[in-house]
Design a protein around this nucleic acid. Structure first.
Lengths: 344, 344
DNA sequence: TTTAGCACTCAAACAAAGAGAGTGCTAAAA
DNA sequence: TTTTAGCACTCTCTTTGTTTGAGTGCTAAA
């Protein structure tokens, strides 16, 4: 596949750069002039013609300049783009910001989404870190009234779930305290399956609460508190490809329909991997909704303990260099934060 | 102000209806034809002319039909609109949906936003119920490692806050349990100020934790967990007035800049009140960002216990009838849910 | 292999011409 | 006095044709 000459690679790079900059088709003249090439526009035209033949460029219409195809972007990202890093000062600043927030996952996610959006100048999304299998750390029961109690479960990852439970007979706070202490002792470190296995051996209030607990843990496993943090949508809507209301609406659809996002994010297999960063261009053919979109995603966290995904999404014509470096850096930072805070 | 003749009122009503339906200026001919009026278009023209003089209608340009002014909408909403209710079956269905969710405020908010968006066909927003003053119900400390612990505070409204605290010396779970029980006993039902007053009399670990607790309670008071739930943005972007990317972007701005929303929502004084429902048309002159928007808001909850705000926002040309009835009904439902679940 | 030159193409910008929706005014009818 | 038919007028929107210019591909010379 990589039968491109050096000059073709160079020209492809220029076309991609220029198109990302200007959002318009790139012509041979313009390229020669803007980049002071010491070859003529006719030569550039010949090379462009070859690149078109190879499927890396296309013409919106006969007398227009060239635009990169999805394939062209893919080639650019995997072979031509020089692998940048965020500047030292920026990295310092961001790192500082993170260490200054209070120790709160919610804050981190928000901050990560915000920084990511600003650095990449497209839209960002961050999922909360989620353990592969929820394990109980602590159970707490608080009496509310009569037969109702507030059940709070803390998992080893640090996630907190709450739910109101109803038991068969009225209970006092003491009874609840005792039960919660006993169950915490029994089940600490255990997952839904193990709790369920034990459950049969319990009686009375303990058994009732344990049933609720199993229910809760199962729910926690099933993606549970998987909030998605979004930011920078305005960046994307400002891009010319979304100026038509049709595309703008479609963009919004993506964001309001969380299931679609989940589907996409959970499908984070490493294909185009660059240090864990995955680039999906034009929906990779599979995702029809995303034909106009690209995403740069990376997993973060501590495998086995808790992992999440973060990334950016924008038009195919996206500043991949900046996006990739921002995503990689923030995946690193968040991994660090999660690891630091969640180590037992 | 109300010197309109019956016929003028009738025509204003028709213009508003027709404009809301068609999004286009409304002409005299069209009105006569579409609504089978038994007066001539010339008469309608005369009346329209009068309404324009009075400031209730305006012409986008000389040879165009009429469009309601903000003043026209206001008159319509407060004098002409017949006060509808959601159909019985719909009310039943919604109510059923709420009672079927698990007892979880988060779910309710989400559901309320979703139902509101669907019923009104514009965008909806719901703030979580928030007590005027947070009062501690229960304090829980969970050891994580070394000098760190997870502090969980449950307030009387049922809100849960978590935060990681660091104390001066290493602690065990027992020490933490004892401290949390003692402090829960001491401060249950108390607010930030009362806890602060007592704090001086404590020593050692208790004092340290109490200091963190005060901090947390103060934060809880300050709007704290005030998430805003949004839904139905796609409805709004589908409207023709937001087809230009400029307006679409502005719409997005409103939604990403939560502070602006907070500002607006917390300013829910009752002016145009209809059974607690407040209608803000075209930003009411004051909010420049909202010149193209209208909002229908209502407070809900139990004053003294916990209150929140919910409502819809959309273009000025909004189906006020449906919006108002939906907002009123859902404010009722949510009040009920909150009251039922939070009574001590 | 590169490049100058040139004919050709096609979208976008512009201008002129109509069509159509709607108005306001006047004078007649009710 | 109020309503209405009639009509001239206004202004946007659409259509149609024209021009412009960026950009191409091809050919033939360097």
């Amino acid at each position: 596949m990589s039968e491109l000459t050096d000059r073709q690679k160079f020209i492809l790079t220029l076309v991609v750069h220029e198109h990302i900059r200007s959002a318009a088709p790139v012509g041979s003249d313009l390229l020669v002039k803007n980049y002071q090439l010491d070859i003529s526009s006719a030569t550039v035209r010949n090379e462009m013609s070859a690149l078109t033949e190879l499927g890396y460029l296309r013409q919106p219409h006969t007398s227009a300049g060239r635009v990169p195809t999805e394939e062209g972007y893919r080639y650019f990202v995997s072979h031509l783009m020089r692998d940048t890093e965020l500047p030292e000062t920026t990295r310092r600043m961001i790192s500082h910001q993170f260490h200054q927030t209070r120790n709160d996952a919610d804050e981190w996610m928000r901050l990560a989404a915000s920084v990511l959006a600003r650095q990449s100048s497209v839209a960002s999304l961050v999922t909360a870190p989620h353990p592969d299998k929820a394990r109980l750390k602590h159970l707490e029961l608080i009496s509310t009234r009569g037969r109702q109690a507030l059940m709070i479960t803390v998992t080893i990852g640090g996630e907190i779930h709450q739910r109101i439970v109803t038991v068969n007979d009225p209970v006092t706070q003491e009874m609840l305290t005792i039960t919660s202490q006993r169950l915490t002792g029994l089940f600490s470190g255990k997952g839904a399956d193990e709790i369920q296995a034990w459950q049969a051996q319990l009686q009375g209030l303990d058994a009732e609460i344990a049933a609720w607990l199993v229910d809760e843990m199962i729910e926690a496993d099933a993606l549970g508190s998987g909030d998605i943090y979004l930011d920078g949508l305005k960046n994307v809507l400002a891009e010319p490809e979304f100026s038509g209301s049709e595309e703008a609406r479609r963009a919004l659809r993506l964001l309001e329909e969380r299931p679609l996002l989940y589907d996409l994010l959970s499908n984070t297999k490493v294909s185009n991997g660059i240090g864990g960063v995955q680039v999906l261009i034009g929906g990779e053919g599979a995702w029809d909704e995303f034909r106009q979109w690209s995403m740069v995603l990376a997993p973060y966290g501590q495998p086995g303990l808790a992992t999440g995904t973060l990334g950016v999404m924008g038009p195919i014509r996206m500043p991949y260099g900046r996006a990739i470096s921002a995503v990689r850096f923030l995946a690193g930072i968040l991994s660090e934060m999660v690891t630091e805070s969640l180590e037992e």
